[in-house]
Simulated scan of single mutants.
Amino acid sequence: MMIDWSRLSRDYPILDGLPATLRERVVERSVTAGERLALQGETPTGMYFVLAGEVRLLRRSSSGRETVMQRVQEGFVAEASLDAPCYHCDLIAGASGKVLVFPRCDFEAALTESREFNQAWIVHLSGELRRARSRNERLACPTAAERIRHAILTEGDGRGLVVGSTRKEWAAELGLTHEALYRALRRLRETGAIHEDGGWIEWLAD
């Protein structure tokens, strides 16, 4: 199937500056929920861009505990793998959808050859760095309630947050067990600190 670059460039500005040589090498593929696109320890051979669905970076501790390091529903995922000798996390489809797969060597060449694409990539990575810093700040919060508050106020619209995943999945993003998240949410509801309406959580305490 032909890739509609005109539409993609309009919907995703970072793709507008892709050199023609790189566009010719891109493959669009469907993924199914739970599919493993790459495993920890494998050598990266491509760069993934999520068009629909969801892809997650999942890290497991020696005790088997899972932490979601990145969750992407639109855009590039696992950017750090571009210059890494191996993946440090599993790359898993959290929901069925579509991704673009850029061959790693061609992607690297495009960054060297196209100043426009290189600049767009730098801007993108700067945004990812800010989000990573915010996430690290959140994980440093000592209590589950503080992590919930931080997520609502920094990831939402300043008043509330639409959680686009299950509570168990959100717990993994917050670095909590799902039991700890459920207990914290219950206490926050009982004290009037939050209001929940489906996937919407509003912070009321401040």
Score class of each variant (00 low, 15 high):
43 T>G: 00
70 Q>F: 00
24 E>I: 04
128 E>R: 15
99 V>L: 14
183 R>Q: 07
167 R>S: 05
56 R>Y: 14
112 T>I: 14
170 W>T: 03
121 W>M: 14
154 T>K: 09
87 Y>G: 04
88 H>F: 12
99 V>C: 06
158 G>H: 06
199 G>K: 15
2 M>R: 13
14 I>N: 03
202 E>S: 04
159 R>E: 07
42 E>C: 03
86 C>K: 11
134 S>R: 14
34 G>M: 15
55 V>N: 11
13 P>I: 12
90 D>N: 14
3 I>Q: 02
151 A>V: 03
83 D>F: 13
54 E>N: 11
205 A>W: 14
199 G>R: 15
17 G>M: 01
198 G>P: 05
194 I>Y: 10
148 I>P: 04
76 F>S: 03
103 P>R: 00
173 E>G: 12
179 E>F: 10
155 E>W: 13
117 F>N: 00
119 Q>H: 06
151 A>W: 07
34 G>Y: 12
173 E>A: 13
23 R>F: 08
143 T>P: 02
153 L>R: 12
38 A>H: 02
147 R>S: 15
148 I>G: 06
186 R>F: 11
188 L>Y: 08
138 R>H: 02
90 D>S: 11
174 L>W: 01
42 E>W: 01
17 G>D: 11
104 R>Y: 02
7 R>N: 07
10 R>P: 01
204 L>H: 11
57 L>N: 08
53 G>N: 08
65 R>H: 11
173 E>N: 04
10 R>S: 09
196 E>A: 15
118 N>D: 10
148 I>D: 04
134 S>G: 08
127 G>W: 10
90 D>V: 13
161 L>G: 02
85 P>E: 15
88 H>E: 09
67 T>C: 00
146 E>N: 05
91 L>Q: 06
34 G>D: 05
136 N>H: 11
38 A>F: 01
54 E>G: 10
179 E>K: 11
163 V>M: 02
69 M>W: 05
113 E>R: 01
116 E>W: 08
195 H>N: 04
91 L>M: 14
168 K>I: 06
129 L>W: 08
101 V>H: 05
24 E>R: 14
166 T>F: 07
61 S>E: 04
102 F>T: 00
174 L>I: 01
80 A>M: 10
10 R>Y: 06
154 T>W: 15
23 R>Y: 12
119 Q>V: 12
11 D>L: 15
152 I>N: 02
132 A>Q: 06
171 A>L: 08
111 L>Y: 00
184 A>L: 08
57 L>K: 14
89 C>N: 10
133 R>S: 05
80 A>S: 07
85 P>G: 15
32 T>P: 00
134 S>D: 06
156 G>K: 08
18 L>D: 03
49 F>H: 08
181 L>H: 12
83 D>I: 10
42 E>H: 07
144 A>N: 02
149 R>T: 02
62 S>N: 03
